[in-house]
Design a protein around this nucleic acid. Sequence first.
RNA 1: GGAGGGAUGGCUGAGUGGUCGAAAGCGCCUGACUUGAAAUCAGGUAGGCCCCCUGGGUCUCGUGGGUUCGAAUCCCACUCCCUCCGCCA
Length: 432
Amino acid sequence: MIDLTDLRARPEAYQDAAKKKRIAVDVGSFLKLDETRRGLILAIDEMRAKKNAVSKAVPTMKGTEKEKTIAQMKKLGDELKAKEEELQTIEVKFQHTLLLLPGIPLDRVPVGKDDSENVEIRTHGKIPKFAFEIQSHMTIGTNLDIIDVPRGVKIAGSRSYFLKGDGARLELAVLLFTLDHLAKKGFTPFIPPVLANYDALMGTSYFPGGEEQAYAIGVQKEKDGALESDGLFLIGTSEVSVASYHSGETLALEELPKRYCGISNCFRREAGTYGKDTQGLYRIHQFQKVEQVVLCENDPKVSAAMHAEILQNAEEVLQALELPYRVVDVCTGDMGRGQVYKNDIETWMPSRNSYGETHSCSTFYDFQSRRLNMKYVARDGSKKFVHTLNNTCIASPRILIPILEIYQNKDGSVTIPEVLRPYMGGKKIIEK
RNA sequence: GGAGGGAUGGCUGAGUGGUCGAAAGCGCCUGACUUGAAAUCAGGUAGGCCCCCUGGGUCUCGUGGGUUCGAAUCCCACUCCCUCCGCCA
């Protein structure tokens, strides 16, 4: 959520941000709504003040004066109710639109329409050359019997899969390695609820807008089969639960920054992606992820330093796995509503003959913390909204794509990255 | 799934229709006393919104609705928590 005072002061900056982020929202009509709303609040407050004053005096009255006053108040009460209903209608619209207004991207963010206009800022590692004809992770995984898509589809429909045997172990190895790496850096690991309510999804700014990407939880009604909602949703990232951990709280300055990481299954409906990335483990409904979440002081310098830190943590994991990657500045059109700055890390995927997105590092400033009502006591004693940031540290099985493909051998076996071997009982190679 | 109990300020907890945003205690802050601290004493101590903003108004006693001139208090619905029984990883 944006700062209303700031919006009133420079509405054009928000309209510009919406345009650059390709978000359809009319700041001008929102401001008109805001004015109407404030006018109504003023009128209502005045009526209430009168009502309260008279009600206070009623007990001291008697006889006809009392009866007359009560009759007048009844009339005022009716008028008040009508005004309140009017306000309610406007309030709903107001709050809804308020949640749609975007955070303003930093000046350094490249302007662009979609991910094709993201800007590479650095690369790391050499793109491998193979002396033999390479196989895709799907061929490798199927032949080694560590990935089974057909049976996944049998059980859970399209975009489903089984990881099996060393495939399952490899995923856990990569997750545990990452978790250990973050623990060394002082990050507190969380196993969060994977079910979250509307407030958590709204607070992290997935809702409103992202409803169709989330699985809703409920029971099917016997009669018509419609979903009777429990009001809960499966999270698409542990950011939802972990960033909401301190919602409604006021933290002490000394507690900051909070360095947290969530490890969880993540669920995405991938609605509207028919025909996109249908092959393999790139775009699927369920995956596991270690996600970094940071809460820090409301200071652009501090959050910029934290952004660099969590970006580096992820890069270090890729470097340890010896996977080539590049970092891009995400352009305005590919950013979310709330983010002010975002980098993606893309890891080299031989079968795609390109880099594929594996990480996403976002700075929100106070966009999320305003929605989550998450404050801290600043140096001057005032209460301020924290800055929030998050970044993937590893997401699997997507990361298995480069691992299997880059570490594949001519005979169809896969060498296990050295740093993962301790997590697989010292095993060095996955073979038939 | 069955039975019961509960939700009030940072915490404990009083309050069953009118001057209650709310007693008391604890905690915290400020001041006095003290070499310092403790103890003691005095004062202060929720948040949101709106305005003609050194001030004023309004809303909030789990949430939403209702009754009433007036609701923390009465009525209805919902949510969450706790205890016991049953079932269960």
